[in-house]
Structures are given as C-alpha cells and as structure tokens.
C-alpha cells in the first residue's frame, strides 16, 4: 500500500515538472538583441549572419531565452527603451543627429547598454559621435581582469583577435556612468565578423568559437550589471 502511494506521488511530481517545463517553454523570450540603425551612410546592417549565430549560441549555452530574430531600431524609435542591449557595427560613417544624441544619452544613462564593434573603418566617426553623446566622458580601456572578460568564458588576454585589420592588438574601451559600464567599444578584433558563418570569411572554427564566447560574455555582463 505504501509503495503504491509512493509511486503515485512520484508520478504526480513528474507530471508537474513536465507541466512546468511545457509552460515555461510556452513563455515568451527573456531577451532580444537589438541592432542600432544609425545614419551617416555606414553599413549598419553588415554581417547579416552574425547576430543569428550569436543568438543560437546564447540559446545553446546559456539559460537565457533569446528572441530568435534580431530587432533593428533607430535611436528615435519609440521602442528603444524596451531593449536593454544594443549592438552596432559597420565599416563606415556614423552620424547621430541632435535628437539621436539626446535619446542615446538618456537611454544609456538610464540602464541601457551599447556594444559597438568596429568592423574596420568605423572608429573615427564613432568616437566623434560618442563625444557628442557624452562630452564629459572618455573612452577608457578595460583591464584584462575586468569581469566582462571572465563572466562566463575566460579571456585572460582580453579580446580575441579575429581579423587582422591594422595588425594591432585588440582593445576594449568603455564609457562609464556613475561607475556602470554603459558602452563597450571593441576595435582591432571584429567580433561581428567572427560571429558570421565560417564560410563567409573562412575563419577557423576556433576564432568563430572565441568570438561567440566573447559575445556571450558581453551580453551576460550587460544583463547582470
């Protein structure tokens, strides 16, 4: 008799677990990656397979339920503040209008996070435009022991070097607000290219993997700080 009840109890617990799991799977996503659509003529939309690959990697290797498709928004888009994390990249000119500047400033200082990745050629204009957003803040290079390099995957030497660019060491720069990292700008690395399908740039799998891991680190850091 006792054993009958015990079995019944186990069965109930199992069914409840299934129910929770199914219900949880029916829940909407926790997080969506938003790509910043900026003006200026630069190719904000470059590396089309990068974010889908990063999203897959996040789904497979973290507990975050990520929206399968990236969201693309301009600074003026009313939904800007719904997304805690923005990614931007490009080869070319970045330009923020005055209203873009104000919105971005407000977004970043009220909890938002921007990861900008220089796809090679974006550096000058991006720094210029960010100066408009934060005239009183400087880009500071993050030391290798910063949590962003270790939060899930370890990068003891900082950013992985994915593509050659100018042959210089990769660097990660940050802008802080009240001690919180709000902008993370990566140069001489090209994480976006690293996230792309390996046959696009014929990158070795190790580079592809490293890029995805670093991308995961950045997102996890952004969501937990």
């Amino acid at each position: 008799m006792i054993s009958k009840y015990f079995k019944f109890g186990i069965g109930v617990i199992f069914l409840l677990g299934m129910l929770v799991t199914v219900t949880a799977q029916d829940q909407p996503y926790d997080f969506a990656i938003a790509r910043l659509h900026y003006d200026g003529g630069g190719d904000w939309y470059s590396d089309p397979s990068s974010l889908p690959n990063l999203i897959n990697f996040l789904q497979e290797n973290t507990d975050i339920k990520v929206r399968p498709e990236e969201v693309r928004l301009k600074p003026q888009d009313p939904q800007l503040f719904l997304y805690p994390y923005f990614y931007m990249t490009g080869h070319g000119n970045v330009r923020f209008s005055e209203s873009d500047v104000q919105r971005l400033r407000r977004y970043l200082t009220t909890g938002g996070f921007l990861h900008a990745d220089d796809n090679y050629g974006m550096d000058e204009s991006f720094r210029r435009e960010m100066k408009k957003v934060f005239p009183n803040k400087e880009f500071v290079e993050l030391p290798y022991d910063h949590p962003i390099y270790h939060i899930k995957y370890d990068f003891p030497n900082g950013l992985p070097k994915i593509h050659k660019h100018d042959g210089k060491p990769p660097k990660g720069f940050g802008i802080f607000h009240d001690g919180r990292l709000i902008v993370f700008y990566t140069i001489e690395t090209d994480l976006g290219d690293g996230w792309e399908d390996t046959d696009v740039h014929n990158d070795p799998l190790a580079k592809h993997e490293a890029a995805l891991q670093m991308g995961t680190n950045i997102i996890l850091y952004a969501l937990t700080h």
Partner: peptide, 23 residues
C-alpha cells in the same frame, strides 16, 4: 568610408600587457 587597408584576414593573437586598471 572603407579604408584601403581594410583587412578581413584572420588575425594572429597578439600578446600584450593590458592596462593596469581603470582610472
């Protein structure tokens, strides 16, 4: 807007001493 030096060659890892810390 593309620099003539644009490289999408695979980069070699470069060892460097990073910054000592944040200001």
């Amino acid at each position: 807007d593309y620099s003539k030096k644009r490289e999408s060659e695979v980069g070699e890892d470069l060892t460097r001493t990073g910054p000592a810390g944040l200001p």
